[in-house]
Simulated scan of single mutants.
Amino acid sequence: MSSTALFRPETEIAGRKIVQTGPVSVSTSLGAISIRITGDLPSLQGLWETMQAHTPCTAAQTYDWAHAWTQHVLDPSTASPSSW
């Protein structure tokens, strides 16, 4: 039986920084989409809630869930995962 590590050491996590360089274009079977990384979740609320009203989704894919997760997990001073 094999196992998968669910937790990574802080040193490995700290080494993985996402560099924000602008929108990334991705081709999908439905056409091209543009992906952008943002730290401003509230600015996405209207668009996110419009999309979830028209598309089936689980509770974990809703804006309310994402907002609650960020309030619980992210350190307010750094917007990075706080160490528990």
Results as ranks from 00 to 15, higher is better:
E10H: 13
T11L: 12
I33V: 01
L47H: 06
Q20C: 09
R16S: 10
P56W: 03
G31M: 04
W69R: 14
I13E: 02
M51A: 13
D64P: 06
V19D: 06
V19F: 04
D64K: 15
A32Y: 05
T38R: 07
T21R: 15
W69G: 10
R16W: 04
E10K: 15
L47W: 05
S34W: 00
T4K: 07
S27C: 08
P56D: 11
E49P: 02
L6R: 10
T21Y: 13
L47R: 05
A32L: 08
A60Y: 15
L47D: 08
Q45W: 00
L44T: 03
T62C: 02
A5R: 09
L41D: 01
D64W: 11
I18G: 05
H54G: 14
A60S: 15
E10L: 14
S34N: 01
M51W: 05
I37K: 11
L41K: 03
S34L: 02
L30N: 13
I18S: 11
G31E: 03
T58I: 01
V24N: 14
T50H: 10
A59I: 04
S27R: 11
Q20A: 11
D40F: 10
G15Y: 00
A5E: 07
K17W: 06
V26I: 11
H67N: 14
T4Q: 08
L41G: 00
V19C: 04
T21V: 11
A66T: 09
P42C: 07
W48C: 02
T11A: 15
E10S: 12
A32F: 05
L44Q: 02
W65L: 09
I37P: 07
V26R: 10
G31V: 04
A5N: 07
Q45S: 04
R8V: 07
E49D: 12
G22T: 02
V24T: 15
D64R: 15
E49Q: 10
